[in-house]
Design a protein around this nucleic acid. Structure first.
Lengths: 367, 367
DNA sequence: TTGTATGCGTTATCAA
DNA sequence: TTGATAACGCATACAA
């Protein structure tokens, strides 16, 4: 039992230490411990001696040295625009899950919602010689922030949650249009006719795409959307701004005496704001007004009533992004699989906040 | 403009490249770029030439090489028990915020709620030669999982969210007892007398501490808690189990015809489950029953009604943990500041789910 | 079947 | 004022 009172840095066990312990050369130790084919040429006795010694001494390979020598860091930089955003966190899980089996380590940084930090953190990761970069966007990240020059980093880049028009940067995101389609379909099939639509900020791709999907479904069944029931929440800098946006939009809608039996909200946060507003006015959800969101953030299942929504497979998106970047990292990888856009399929999650239209809501929606 | 079509790994610019570019030695370049005192001995002309060349060539220091040479990785390993737990994510923000100014990089890993992965990930970080370890626990992490041998890793360890009885591992967590005290105080001061208490799993430190705080407040005002209104949710493996626990406990309480005008829940998730149950039975919150949680997870402010709760300063805990580990890393650091326990002060966040007792709730709580 | 030597990019020591 | 050079821990081509 050695006293461990020593001051840092503590000397760690190296290959040389192991080699000395069993009177072989460092190369032999390296071969055996890495299970290289060449190791099979060593006598079984030597091999086991090496393994025993390594274990006894508590040898831990030094990844930094390995990275230096092999010119491969085995790390992927992950820049999350806001790690507290529940939307992002499941993506991270997916990324880690896909990276682990191939021995890659994600280096995660939170950009804390600031475009400024963004570039700076990427520089940090480059210093660590990450072999690839995954950017997890959320709706606060303006396109300006990214497109600056994501292309010029010298490593493959995959961006999650945002479609980017670059020739060298790949995207993984939900099929927003399909999602919008599904959302309206869900409400319409439950009998709703007067449907308010609360769109996201105009500048946002997602807003546009989802609305397109909504309109496409409407056309497909020759259903006419009441334009006066379509509103838009303002752009904002706060992660929770969607909630306020939904709240304000609903208050406005209600005070203008518009009638509707259902609200299709831009996302879950917006939907929760809508519900708050309806509740304050004294309208019951879903008895009098149905509400559907988009994303399926964890909170969606915890509220009362629980929130019907369009689920994005965040974890799956993370996995896809990670797998894609692994491909790109392979030598010649950028050749065969170049910049692509992968859309994941959204799915309806019907919970308590939507219900078939009732007498109550029908009466209410009479204009 | 060089074509960048080459296959990976892309050769990066080194000190030697810069040195060659301006006909000086690598040592000079190193001195200048690191702004060492010795660099002042070089002529101003040389210095600026070096800086210009470095910038022109796009030099990026190789941290792996630096780590190898200096025996300092400038990284801190952070093992989060569940990165999707909103409780954890704000702590991460705090950690990053405190680490950044001192040039330390957090290496974040999600243990995905499994004690098994836990040890394995720590091994990974040790291979990367992290200089310290921060473990972010949540209530699913059983003490067994950690105490195994957190002490023997050779680097300082700080654990957030759990008090550990080790002589070498420091803890940062909320003052649970004070929190329990505050929660009961809040309810009592609003006039509630029949108060149900839903405790966390028995095995959990937090449960015990919070209950102690509750009892301490009760004693301080000579208020007698009705033991039959104190229940406990079962231990569980699911991150969202608290919700179900709160739900079930409430249903049980109600079906046993107990009367109460307020519920003090173990945490926010539990509280949300309670609200769901009350709603199903047809009891209005807070008009007929007040509910208070613990933690102040993001969802707490988004629900309708929004949740009154006891806030933990998660971000602050992250900062504290990071600062502490930085101290411990300093040479001789472990000497002057050894294993300690730092408690952060909880604060009441009064929102909509609690209100002063009304005629309705008074009537209801008559037994 | 095993060992030696070299270099990865840096920093630090010593010499010029 | 500046430049060689060794060493950090490891992997590998080459020798023995």
């Amino acid at each position: 039992m050695k006293k461990t009172k020593s001051s840092r840095p503590m000397k760690t066990v190296t290959l040389a230490d192991v080699a000395r312990e069993c009177n072989v050369s460092v190369s032999s130790v390296s071969l055996v411990l890495n299970e290289k084919p060449l190791a099979r040429l060593l006598s079984e006795k030597t091999r086991s001696a090496i393994r025993v010694a390594a274990h006894k001494l508590g040898y831990t390979p030094n990844r930094n040295a390995q990275a230096l020598r092999s010119q491969r860091s085995n790390t992927i930089g992950v820049v999350v625009f806001d790690i507290a955003d529940p939307f992002c966190t499941l993506i991270l899980k997916g990324i880690q899950a896909a990276l682990e089996p191939v021995g890659m380590l994600p280096i995660i940084m939170d950009a804390t919602n600031q475009g400024k930090q963004f570039e700076q953190y990427i520089a940090l990761m480059l210093e660590r010689r990450v072999e690839g970069l995954i950017v997890v966007a959320n709706w606060l990240l303006s396109d300006k922030d990214i497109t600056s020059n994501l292309e010029a980093f010298g490593v493959p880049v995959v961006i999650v949650g945002r479609e980017v028009e670059s020739a060298t940067v790949s995207s993984v995101l939900v099929d927003n249009e399909a999602g919008g389609y599904l959302a309206l379909q869900h409400l319409h099939q439950m009998g709703h006719q007067k449907i308010a639509v609360i769109c996201g900020p105009k500048g946002l791709q997602d807003s546009y795409r989802r609305l397109r999907g909504i309109e496409r479904y409407a056309r497909s069944i020759r259903f006419t959307l009441d334009r006066s029931l379509i509103v838009e929440i303002p752009d904002a800098a706060d992660p929770l701004a969607g909630f306020d946006g939904g709240y304000e939009a609903t208050i406005e809608l209600l005070s203008s005496k518009k009638k509707f039996s259902a609200v299709l909200a831009f996302d879950d946060l917006t939907a929760l704001g809508v519900i708050r507003a309806l509740h304050e006015i004294g309208l019951r959800v879903p008895d009098e007004v149905s509400v559907i969101g988009f994303d399926d953030i964890p909170a969606a299942s915890l509220t009362t009533p629980s929130l019907s929504t369009i689920r994005q497979d965040m974890s799956g998106m993370g996995v896809t992004a990670a797998q894609h970047i692994i491909e790109l990292i392979q030598p010649n990888g950028s050749a065969n699989s170049s910049a692509s856009i992968r859309l994941t399929k959204p799915v309806v999650v019907a919970r308590e906040s939507t219900s078939a239209i009732t007498r109550d809501s029908r009466r209410l929606s009479k204009s």
